[in-house]
């Protein structure tokens, strides 16, 4: 059963021919955005590799170790927030794609933003409690690479929140114009991409660090 026989114009989310010009017009933009995300992926990849190479006793340098600092409950809450926000982000796209229901798109975007903000709150709380236990990035190479990797992801989430606010304002002004539709698709690619990166972070950093 596959009711989506129409051509895709670029990898990932597509609007579908029902959207005419917006569908065609998004081709180069979204493909370009994919390329940009791949470049971002390399940045994360290098930070992952640096982190993986900085977990030995030399890099910990007598400072706090993962077991001293990590809070698995908080990490699981963050994971739940982010996964839920991925789902609601998808719902926002469906609301746009089918029916072009402006208020539903906005509602789902607001829910996504709230979930993202929840993620960020717990992440910052974790950072604060780590720092209270000598876990500052200046303490050791391991902590430097930890903060760089997790912090960069958090920075991306922060930018994502800013992006959602901008999109809400943009939808207010321009409704679901062709450009807004393309931008929403871009945002959803970005947001799902961040969730994929987070899978790597909680597995490599937190779970593998505590096991």
């Amino acid at each position: 059963m596959n009711p989506n026989p129409y051509p895709k114009l670029h990898p990932g989310l597509n609007l579908g021919p029902a959207h005419g010009v917006a569908h065609e017009g998004s081709e180069a933009v979204l493909f370009g955005f994919w390329i940009f995300l791949m470049s971002d992926l390399i940045i994360f990849g290098i930070l992952f590799a640096t982190y993986a190479a900085s977990t030995g006793p030399m890099a910990i340098a007598g400072g706090p170790r993962p077991t001293d600092l990590f809070d698995l409950v908080s990490v699981s809450i963050q994971t739940a927030f982010l996964l839920a926000s991925s789902l609601t982000c998808g719902m926002a796209i469906l609301a746009m794609k089918y029916g072009e229901n402006v208020s539903r798109v906005k509602l789902w975007l607001v829910v996504t933003a709230l979930l993202g903000a929840g993620f960020l709150t717990f992440e910052l709380r974790d950072f604060a409690s780590m720092m209270a236990h000598q876990g500052t990035p200046m303490r050791s190479a391991w902590l430097s690479s930890l903060y760089a990797l997790v912090g960069l992801h958090g920075l991306h989430i922060t930018m994502g929140l800013l992006w959602i606010l901008t999109m809400l304002a943009l939808i207010q002004v321009q409704r679901l114009s062709n450009k807004v539709k393309t931008r929403l698709l871009m945002f959803s690619l970005y947001w799902h991409f961040l969730d994929v990166i987070w899978i790597g972070i909680f597995s490599v950093v937190f779970l593998a660090g505590l096991v």
Binding site: T50, M58, P137, M138, S140, A141, S144
Partner: peptide, 21 residues
């Protein structure tokens, strides 16, 4: 940027001490 973090904020990616590589 990692070098900048070392220089500006006292991180230890590439320093001689505290595990820098």
């Amino acid at each position: 940027l990692m070098l900048a973090l070392d220089r500006y904020l006292g991180f230890h990616f590439f320093t001689n001490d505290l595990g820098g590589n």
